[in-house]
């Protein structure tokens, strides 16, 4: 059952991501993306990472996608009516590359240490928190500054012009 859910969710995540490749309307794409992200959240949970799963739902599916939709709204994007999505010019090479990338990453991934009979553990928020504010304290601080920097950058860029 666990495995079934996992693989099923994985198929959903992948399918939704694949749909983004072919949908025409940005909003549809955003919705597919949300689907994919939510499926991922489930996967995280299944892989014993409840905190990340929660954050995924809140942060990604919530905040970021709203941002996307907001920008779409501002930009007022809508495709010309009923137009079929055409293959982009020079699609062959990128397609080939993507295929090759899939193959090579698969080759790499299947080199991973084999895990025969591992026990499933859930690493809870506490362990994660300890790690974050123990070993990775400096990184957290820097990440905070990074967010500040992003804020500054966005504020500057969004200003219309200097008085």
């Amino acid at each position: 059952m666990y495995k079934l859910i996992f693989y099923l969710t994985a198929v959903i995540a992948i399918g939704a991501a694949g749909a983004i490749l072919i949908v025409r309307h940005p909003v549809h794409a955003a919705l597919y993306l949300i689907a994919s992200l939510l499926a991922l959240a489930l996967l995280f949970f299944l892989l014993g990472a409840p905190l990340v799963a929660a954050l995924q739902v809140i942060l990604y599916a919530g905040a970021i996608m709203v941002l996307f939709l907001f920008v779409m709204m501002v930009m007022d994007l809508r495709p010309a009516s009923n137009e079929r999505l055409a293959l982009p010019k020079g699609w062959r090479v990128p397609t080939l590359l993507v295929a090759a990338l899939a193959v090579e990453l698969a080759v790499v991934v299947f080199q991973a240490p084999l895990s025969g009979d591992e026990i499933w553990v859930s690493v809870g928020p506490k362990a994660v928190g300890q790690s974050l504010f123990g070993t990775y304290l400096i990184a957290v601080e820097v990440a905070a500054i990074l967010l500040l920097a992003a804020l500054v950058a966005v504020l500057y860029l969004s200003r219309r012009s200097r008085p």
Binding site: F6, L21, V109
Partner: peptide, 20 residues
């Protein structure tokens, strides 16, 4: 229990699709 390679493979596929 999901083997590491399987979940990594799913991740790789997602990564590839994103690249696509």
């Amino acid at each position: 229990m999901i083997p590491l390679t399987h979940s990594l493979f799913v991740g790789a596929l997602l990564f590839t699709l994103g690249a696509a």
